[in-house]
Computed example of a mutant assay.
Amino acid sequence: MDDETLSEWAERRDTRIGRLRAVPLVPGGSPRGSHLNPDAPRAIQRWNGHMWEPHGFAVNLAETKRILFPGTEAAPASGPAPRLGPGTGRHRKPQAPE
């Protein structure tokens, strides 16, 4: 058998300490996807090595993402969006600049 040693297991467990997760606060069963109920408040929980403990609170999905993923805000697009050629197909190609 390829069992890991206790020290390897403890090291793997300790790397997860401090990890955060968000739990939607909605009535009934909690939704499976984070995009469901984007305006619902969320409890932020922190892993302490043995169990998830309360860490904070967010009022909606946007604030939750700022807490869980700091510094990953999308950069503004550079320049205007390309103009699409005539037609209604979904595979239209951008026009060449004039």
Results as ranks from 00 to 15, higher is better:
23 V>G: 00
45 Q>G: 01
45 Q>A: 08
20 L>A: 00
66 R>H: 09
91 H>F: 14
86 P>Q: 01
50 H>Y: 12
23 V>A: 05
65 K>W: 12
37 N>P: 02
4 E>N: 05
94 P>A: 04
58 A>F: 04
22 A>W: 00
85 G>C: 08
66 R>D: 13
43 A>K: 15
37 N>F: 14
59 V>T: 14
88 T>Q: 13
21 R>A: 05
52 W>L: 03
89 G>L: 06
11 E>A: 11
44 I>A: 15
15 T>D: 02
80 P>L: 03
42 R>E: 08
95 Q>T: 10
39 D>S: 11
73 E>G: 15
14 D>W: 03
11 E>Y: 03
86 P>V: 00
18 G>P: 04
80 P>A: 11
4 E>L: 08
93 K>I: 07
18 G>R: 03
77 A>T: 07
17 I>K: 14
89 G>K: 11
30 S>Q: 15
63 E>R: 14
39 D>L: 10
46 R>C: 13
60 N>W: 04
77 A>V: 03
27 P>C: 01
50 H>E: 14
53 E>P: 02
97 P>A: 14
64 T>M: 13
41 P>T: 09
81 A>R: 13
29 G>D: 12
58 A>P: 11
39 D>H: 07
66 R>Y: 06
91 H>E: 10
96 A>Q: 08
53 E>R: 12
21 R>F: 01
49 G>L: 08
82 P>R: 15
84 L>K: 13
70 P>N: 01
23 V>C: 08
23 V>K: 07
88 T>F: 12
33 G>V: 07
87 G>V: 04
70 P>C: 02
1 M>H: 14
33 G>D: 14
42 R>T: 10
34 S>G: 10
6 L>F: 11
54 P>S: 06
55 H>N: 04
47 W>T: 04
29 G>Y: 13
45 Q>I: 08
84 L>T: 01
52 W>H: 02
67 I>Y: 15
44 I>D: 15
82 P>I: 07
20 L>N: 00
65 K>P: 03
3 D>P: 06
70 P>V: 01
9 W>E: 05
86 P>H: 00
47 W>G: 03
19 R>Y: 06
60 N>H: 15
63 E>F: 09
67 I>V: 15
97 P>W: 12
51 M>N: 10
86 P>Y: 01
90 R>Q: 10
44 I>H: 15
60 N>T: 08
37 N>G: 03
10 A>Y: 05
69 F>S: 07
98 E>G: 11
13 R>V: 04
93 K>V: 14
